[in-house]
Design a protein around this nucleic acid. Structure first.
Length: 277
DNA sequence: ATGCCTGTAACGTACAGA
């Protein structure tokens, strides 16, 4: 089973590119972030014509997450229990929940498509929100692992955190910025503390997943590694290979992020690329 | 060329992104 995560930066703006890619690369399950649309605006037709079923959570032009799969999607869940809201509180004093998390189970594997808040500035309320969002997710993850330790689980998405200095082209450019601050890194590494690991990094130690549209960042290869697949022990032992699809940043109308892909193979399954296993 | 930012809402300009 081949699984990918991709911040598509508007699905309506580049549905052809996205569907072409998942068909060409035989992606079985695609976790998308920043679809930037509501359910009734999503281009379902192109996905269904290519053999993919789609579940999504999209409220408006901001954020939005989805999972497309050519294998059956089960137990779909929108938002995680500890997910905090952001913005003007309602009459009950609760800030609205944003469209940043959706989960589904595919052939016994639990997958979360996640768009972690950006944080904006270190002194911005969005930064506090980002840290609380990550801490809430880590707390829930610990619970899921305790409840179902044998079920392969992965948190896939745009984490908006730079774990290591070498995950950007020049750490000096990021002094005083979000993404690299110690509290953000602590919030990220807390997922390792509860038992997840980055399943791509051991296979692909170097490489970025995002390049800003501005200032010739891609031609200069001035990027950031911020899209990760964090897997439970049961998930990690299925991972056979990984790809960061850097070529998807080229050409006309790319997203500023590229797909991050893993192949899962079950013990005893010697097929190169089993579609059903 | 991988090239100086892009998408959405709304139709001029604001906001968000990392």
């Amino acid at each position: 089973m081949r699984i990918a995560t991709w911040n598509v930066n508007s699905i309506r703006a580049r549905v052809e590119r996205v569907v072409d890619y998942i068909v060409r690369e035989e992606i079985d399950v695609l976790c998308m972030q920043e679809i930037k649309c509501r359910d009734n605006q999503f281009p379902y037709e192109q996905f269904t014509a290519a053999g993919y079923e789609v579940v999504l959570h999209g409220l408006n032009q901001w954020n939005g997450v989805a999972i497309a799969s050519r294998l059956p999607l089960e137990d779909v869940q929108i938002t995680f229990p500890s997910q905090p809201g952001f913005g003007e509180p309602d009459a009950d004093g609760n800030a609205p929940l944003e469209a940043r998390a959706i989960a589904a189970t595919v052939d016994g594997v639990r997958l979360w498509s996640l768009y972690v808040p950006n944080g904006r500035e270190l002194d911005h309320p969005h930064y506090v929100y980002k840290l609380e969002w990550l801490r809430g997710l880590a707390r829930d993850t610990a619970g899921w692992l305790a409840e179902s330790p044998d079920m392969p689980l992965a948190l896939l998405g745009d984490w908006n955190v730079v774990p290591y200095d070498h995950d950007v082209w020049d750490i000096r450019e990021f002094a005083g910025s979000t993404h690299v601050s110690p509290p953000e890194r602590e919030a990220f590494f807390a997922f390792e503390a509860v038992g997840l690991k980055d399943v791509v990094r051991p296979l692909i130690p170097e490489g970025y997943t995002y390049w800003d549209y501005k200032q010739l960042r891609f031609p200069r290869n001035e990027g950031m590694r911020i899209d990760f697949i964090m897997g439970s022990p049961a998930f990690a032992e299925l991972v056979d290979s990984a790809v960061i699809a850097r070529d998807e940043r080229k050409g006309d109308g790319p997203s500023d992020h590229v797909p991050v892909v893993v192949d899962l193979v079950r013990e005893g399954d010697e097929d190169d690329r089993p579609m059903i296993w």
